[in-house]
Design a protein around this nucleic acid. Structure first.
Length: 328
DNA sequence: CGCTCTTA
DNA sequence: TAAGAGCGG
């Protein structure tokens, strides 16, 4: 089902914000926003973040709360947004639609179950729920005013972020998702949204640890199960790696166990050869317009000042601090 | 998602 | 020792 099983294979090391200063992190925007959307909206009244026109803008509260973390540690985020399906190839559109329908079926099932599992429903909702047009627009609007760079992915934001990191245009991918490893992101930071230091996930070290190639790692993951397929019953991370060592690749391993995984080759390609673009550009030098950003959030989008005061304060302090640092 | 417990 | 179910956050 999920891909938390990958944690068992991943080479993870505690990281310290102190060592991350000056680095650039390509952040999967959907993943990042969603973490704040679920917590912010769920544990407070969602009314507080709805405009008089009925637009939900909890994303603005979440973003203002989450951004100071980067500023305070002198880490430059580059947010990578998912692309619209209109720009994708036809077969890619079909795949996405199938995937989406899968999730929606699962969600319906989970909701209809005799004993409704709230956690599962929440997880599935997070995968089926698209960010609304307003959330897309207002998040970019806030980033524009804060001069925080962002990039538009042709398809999956996480794949684009991994691509940028692979080509050295970002030092890290920022995501909570272990999929970043399958997408070949050299270094991934997890835990950028929670308090405390993040952890670093190392791609090459992971391959070395298990004596696998990138293809082999992806094949093992497909055997265990990914977001795009159910794994083989009774096969966990350890067995999967063993099977790839014994049989060479996914198809041989499946043949040996007389199992099949529909569209196995397509699933591999989702990780090994995803739709990405080289047509991106960003300026990591950030010169935020704090007043403009505040007006945008509290006046234009009617978010109560009390909800974002502290966040803007923290951003302001870190900007002032950065200015002072240049003279010391 | 992470932790813990149960089962093979 | 590995896999998977169950549960809390």
């Amino acid at each position: 089902m999920g891909n938390a099983d990958l944690r068992q294979l991943a080479a993870l090391e505690p990281a310290s914000f102190d060592d991350l200063g000056g680095s650039v992190v390509a952040v999967d925007a959907h993943n990042w926003l969603y973490r704040y959307l679920t917590t912010t909206v769920r544990f407070t009244s969602s009314n507080a973040y709805t405009t008089t026109d009925g637009e939900e803008v909890a994303n603005l509260v979440g973003a203002v709360q989450g951004l100071p973390k980067f500023f305070e540690h002198d880490v430059t985020p580059v947010f990578v947004f998912d692309g619209g399906v209109t720009e994708l190839k036809d077969d890619e559109v079909g795949r996405r639609r199938e995937q989406r329908e899968r999730y929606e079926d699962e969600l319906d099932e989970a909701r209809a179950a005799d004993d409704v599992d709230a956690a599962e429903v929440a997880t599935l909702e997070s995968r089926t729920q698209r960010l609304t047009e307003t959330i897309q627009r207002t998040t970019r609007g806030l980033l524009d005013r804060l001069d925080v760079p962002y990039v538009e992915a042709p398809a999956e934001g996480e794949a684009q972020a991994a691509h940028m990191a692979r080509y050295g245009d970002a030092d890290y991918v920022g995501s909570e998702d272990y999929d970043a490893l399958l997408l070949g992101a050299p270094q991934t930071l997890r835990g950028l949204t929670s308090s405390g230091d993040p952890e670093r996930m190392d791609f090459e070290a992971t391959l070395e640890r298990h004596d696998l190639t990138w293809e082999g790692l992806v094949d093992a993951a497909v055997l265990v199960g990914t977001d795009f397929n159910d794994g083989i019953d009774g096969v966990g991370p350890k067995t999967a790696v063993k099977l790839i060592h014994e049989h060479g690749d996914l198809l041989a391993a499946l043949a040996a166990r007389e199992e099949t995984i529909p569209h196995a080759d397509r699933i591999r390609a989702m990780f090994l050869d995803p739709t990405v673009t080289d047509d991106y550009d960003y300026d990591p030098d950030i010169d935020p317009d704090l007043e403009g950003a505040k007006r945008f959030v509290t006046d234009e989008w009617e978010v109560p000042e009390s909800e974002v005061d502290r966040g803007f304060e923290r951003i302001e302090e870190s900007v002032v601090q950065a200015g002072l640092d240049r003279w010391t």
